[in-house]
Design a protein around this nucleic acid. Structure first.
Ligand SMILES: [Zn+2]
Ligand SMILES: [Zn+2]
Ligand SMILES: [Zn+2]
Ligand SMILES: [Zn+2]
Lengths: 137, 137
DNA sequence: ATTGACCTTAGATCTTAGTCTAGGGTTTAT
DNA sequence: ATAAACCCTAGACTAAGATCTAAGGTCAAT
């Protein structure tokens, strides 16, 4: 059994984060000691690793709760259920990517057009471009 | 002169947002009416358009404040000053892009490996992969 | 003269994922 | 037996960019 600080160290997160996950219903210690200390089992640690791996591929805590509920009830849930969550997330990520690519290209154009020199910015193409209203897309 | 609602409509934002920008030092009405109503000039509108265009290429409000201060004092600032802000932002955007591309590829692998069918999720490769601790990169 | 649309302020609330503090109890080692 | 290191709770605070609410004042038209 691990105390909260031990588990936190093992998983490279803080004890505060573990308490936060608990408060948000993601993750509870299996037991408490006589003094009220949280005591985590290996199974608890596995569940936490599931959470952290999910986080590392971009899922929010709310989405991770959904993944966990599928994982907890595997035999009554389908591959389709799991894949749906992944595909929804993938779609979100692609959307953000597209937006960031748009920003990247706008910024690159701004940067390319400006000499970046040390003369005054009176005719700076960046400032001129930013002062020009853009039609909404 | 525009009242706050008029300017907001013209620029497709809310009056609340204009008050919020004011509170954050980005943007103030040139005048107030006898009753205390904000009154905006065409120059105010130009400044707002600068803000909104900057926002649309990804600058935060804090960064926009920097851009505005360069724009307001053009003759004492340099192209290099302006370009620096753009290049810093570009670097940030590229960083986020790289992270999102990493997420995209992880999610795509998860999705590709799962049949997505309607049988039980007992052997779902997605759930298996998420249960496998990842070494930190 | 009263309705409705508009404006004012200060302050609360939202989202996300925590971090930090205060005030106190427990365990371990010296 | 006492200090260090750990744990507990509840609740406040952070960033960012708004949005919403309450309570009230103003303006145009009927
Ligand atoms: Zn130049
Ligand atoms: Zn320039
Ligand atoms: Zn399957
Ligand atoms: Zn599957």
């Amino acid at each position: 059994m691990f105390k909260i600080g031990e588990l936190a160290d093992l998983c490279n997160i803080s004890a505060d984060t573990l308490r936060f996950y608990e408060k948000n219903g993601l993750f509870q210690a299996s037991k408490r000691s006589g003094a009220g200390y949280r005591l985590y089992t290996q199974a608890d640690k596995n569940r936490l690793e599931f959470i952290l791996t999910s986080k590392s591929v971009g899922f929010s805590l709310k989405e991770i709760a959904d993944l966990l509920s599928i994982n907890l009830d595997k035999s009554n849930r389908t591959c389709g259920d799991a894949k749906q969550l992944v595909d929804d997330k993938l779609a979100q990520v692609k959307e953000k990517l597209a937006e960031l690519e748009r920003l990247e290209s706008s910024l690159q154009s701004l940067s390319d057009a400006c000499c970046g020199g040390s003369e005054s910015a009176l005719h700076c193409t960046i400032l001129e471009a930013l002062a020009t209203p853009k039609k909404p897309h």
